[in-house]
C-alpha cells in the first residue's frame, strides 16, 4: 500500500524536510497573526483592546488590595464627601464609603459575573445549537421543545424568585442562576446556521472519510461558524454586564453589602443624588458605556479577521 504511493510519486522520505520548509515559507499566516494585523490596522479598536485589558487587569488586581468589609462600613464623617480630595478621589456616598474603592471592587464583581455568565451560557448555548442543528430529526425536535419551554418562562421574574428563595447567595450562585436563562438566544442562532452548514458538501465529504459525528460538529462545522460565535459572544458579554447591573439596580442582584456597578448606579434612584451628588453614580455609568463600546469595537475586529473579504490588515 505505502509502496504503491512510493512507486508512482517521485517524492521520498529524503525530501520531506526540504519540502516542509518550502511549504512553510509559502504558508498562509495563522489566525492569531491575522487577528493581530487587523488590530494594528484599526487604531480605535487597538485603543479599545488596551482599555478593556488594562481596565480588567487593574480592577482584578486592585480589588485584591481592598478590604471590602472594612470599605463597606458606614463612616458618618465622609457623608457625601466631595470628589478629588486626598481621602476620597471620587468622593463618597451617603454612608461615607469611598466611590473609587467601590468602583474597583464593584467592577470586579460585575465583570466577573459577566465573564462567567458569558462563558457558561455561550458554551452551553453553542453546544445545544450545534447538536440540535446537526442531528436534526427527532433529536432536534426534542431539544427545540425544551428550548421553547425555557423561552416561555418569564426570565426576570424567575430570577427574582430564585434570588429570594436562596438564603445565602453571592456572585458565584448568581452567575449560575443567570446562566440557566441566558443560553437560549445563542442556541437558536447557532442552530439556524448549523442547519444550513451541515447540508454542505464538506460535511458529506467528512462523513465519507469516516470522521465521527462529534468530530464533524466541533472540528468541521464549529470553525466555519466561528465568526458568528465570536460576534455573538462579544455582544452577549456587553449585554451580560447590563444583566447584572439591571437586576442590582432593581435591588434583586447582588446583596447590598457587595458592591457592584448595578448597586452604584442604583444611587441614581434618588433625585437628590442625580442633581447634587453626581459623583455617586456617574463614574459607574460612564464605565459601563466605555466598556460596552470598547467590547463592540473589539468584536468587529474579530469578525473581520474571521472573514477574509472584510479584512483591512496588511497580511493577505
Amino acid at each position: 500500500m505505502a509502496e504503491n504511493f512510493e512507486r508512482h510519486s517521485d517524492i521520498s522520505a529524503a525530501d520531506l524536510a526540504r519540502l516542509t520548509q518550502e511549504a512553510q515559507a509559502e504558508a498562509t499566516p495563522s489566525t492569531a497573526k491575522i487577528i493581530w494585523s487587523e488590530f494594528k490596522a484599526d487604531k480605535p479598536a487597538m485603543a479599545a483592546l488596551i482599555i478593556i485589558v488594562g481596565f480588567i487587569l487593574f480592577v482584578m488586581i486592585g480589588a485584591l488590595f481592598i478590604n471590602t468589609p472594612k470599605m463597606m462600613e458606614t463612616n458618618i464623617m465622609g457623608y457625601f464627601n466631595q470628589p478629588f480630595t486626598a481621602d476620597y478621589w471620587l468622593g463618597a456616598d451617603s454612608a461615607g464609603r469611598s466611590v473609587a474603592k467601590q468602583l474597583i471592587v464593584g467592577s470586579r464583581n460585575s465583570i466577573g459575573i459577566a465573564i462567567g455568565l458569558t462563558v457558561i451560557s455561550s458554551t452551553f448555548g453553542i453546544c445545544w445549537g450545534l447538536i440540535s442543528g446537526y442531528f436534526n430529526g427527532y433529536i432536534d425536535w426534542g431539544m427545540q421543545r425544551i428550548y421553547d419551554f425555557m423561552m416561555m418562562l418569564p426570565m426576570t421574574m424567575m430570577i427574582i424568585v430564585l434570588v429570594t428563595i436562596i438564603p445565602h447567595y453571592n456572585s458565584v450562585t448568581l452567575t449560575f442562576i443567570f446562566s440557566i436563562f441566558y443560553w437560549e438566544g445563542t442556541s437558536r442562532l447557532i442552530r439556524s446556521r448549523t442547519l444550513a452548514e451541515s447540508e454542505k458538501d464538506y460535511v458529506a465529504a467528512s462523513k465519507a472519510s469516516g470522521t465521527s459525528h462529534w468530530k464533524i460538529i466541533f472540528r468541521e462545522i464549529m470553525p466555519n461558524i466561528s465568526s458568528l460565535i465570536i460576534v455573538d459572544c462579544t455582544l452577549s458579554f456587553a449585554e451580560n454586564i447590563g444583566v447584572e447591573t439591571g437586576l442590582s439596580y432593581l435591588g434583586f442582584g447582588l446583596p447590598s453589602q457587595t458592591p457592584s456597578l448595578g448597586t452604584m448606579i442604583a444611587n441614581a434612584n434618588d433625585p437628590n443624588n442625580i442633581t447634587q451628588y453626581w459623583w455617586t453614580w456617574l463614574p459607574a455609568a460612564l464605565e459601563i458605556i466605555i466598556l460596552c463600546l470598547s467590547i463592540s469595537y473589539v468584536g468587529q475586529v474579530l469578525r473581520r479577521a474571521a472573514d477574509a473579504s472584510q479584512r483591512q490588515g496588511a497580511l493577505d
Binding site: 505505502a2 504511493f5 508512482h8 510519486s9 517524492i11 516542509t20
Partner: peptide, 11 residues
C-alpha cells in the same frame, strides 16, 4: 502522514 500527503499532491 505528511510524506503521504506530499506524495498525493505530487501525484
Amino acid at each position: 502522514e505528511k510524506l503521504r500527503v506530499l506524495q498525493l499532491l505530487n501525484i
